[in-house]
Simulated scan of single mutants.
Amino acid sequence: MSLVTAEIKAKSEVYHGDELCREKSKLLLKEVGLPNGLLPLKDIEEVGYEKESGFVWLKQKKSINHKFEKIGKLVSYAPEITAYVELGKIKKLTGVKTKELLVWITLNEIFVDDPPTGKITFKTPSGLFRTFPVSAFEVEEPVKEVKKDKEEQVKEVKKEEEHNKEVNQVATAVKVQEV
Rank of each mutant, 00 (worst) to 15 (best):
residue 72 G to W: 07
residue 153 Q to T: 01
residue 168 N to D: 13
residue 11 K to R: 15
residue 176 V to L: 13
residue 39 L to Q: 07
residue 52 E to K: 13
residue 48 G to P: 02
residue 41 L to S: 06
residue 158 K to V: 13
residue 169 Q to G: 00
residue 67 K to Y: 01
residue 170 V to D: 05
residue 166 E to H: 09
residue 153 Q to E: 14
residue 166 E to W: 10
residue 22 R to M: 05
residue 144 K to N: 10
residue 42 K to E: 15
residue 149 D to F: 02
residue 21 C to V: 00
residue 100 E to Y: 08
residue 103 V to C: 06
residue 168 N to V: 11
residue 78 A to V: 00
residue 81 I to H: 05
residue 60 Q to T: 04
residue 144 K to Q: 12
residue 159 K to Q: 14
residue 85 V to I: 14
residue 172 T to H: 07
residue 160 E to Q: 11
residue 75 V to H: 02
residue 40 P to R: 12
residue 122 F to C: 05
residue 46 E to R: 05
residue 143 V to P: 04
residue 29 L to R: 05
residue 173 A to F: 07
residue 33 G to Y: 02
residue 126 S to V: 12
residue 76 S to F: 08
residue 114 D to N: 15
residue 127 G to A: 08
residue 142 P to W: 08
residue 16 H to L: 05
residue 59 K to A: 02
residue 69 E to M: 01
residue 37 G to F: 04
residue 169 Q to L: 15
residue 48 G to C: 00
residue 8 I to R: 10
residue 39 L to E: 10
residue 85 V to M: 08
residue 11 K to A: 12
residue 101 L to T: 14
residue 24 K to I: 05
residue 169 Q to S: 11
residue 90 I to L: 09
residue 133 P to E: 12
residue 8 I to E: 02
residue 93 L to M: 13
residue 51 K to M: 09
residue 30 K to R: 12
residue 58 L to F: 11
residue 32 V to H: 04
residue 59 K to H: 08
residue 148 K to E: 15
residue 22 R to W: 00
residue 90 I to G: 03
residue 139 V to T: 14
residue 62 K to P: 00
residue 162 E to L: 15
residue 17 G to A: 00
residue 54 G to N: 01
residue 34 L to T: 09
residue 140 E to R: 11
residue 2 S to K: 05
residue 44 I to Y: 01
residue 39 L to R: 08
residue 154 V to M: 10
residue 163 H to Q: 11
residue 155 K to D: 10
residue 89 K to M: 13
residue 131 T to L: 08
residue 178 E to D: 13
residue 44 I to K: 01
residue 12 S to A: 15
residue 127 G to C: 07
residue 1 M to L: 12
residue 132 F to I: 03
residue 137 F to W: 10
residue 45 E to M: 11
residue 166 E to M: 14
residue 107 L to A: 09
residue 48 G to K: 04
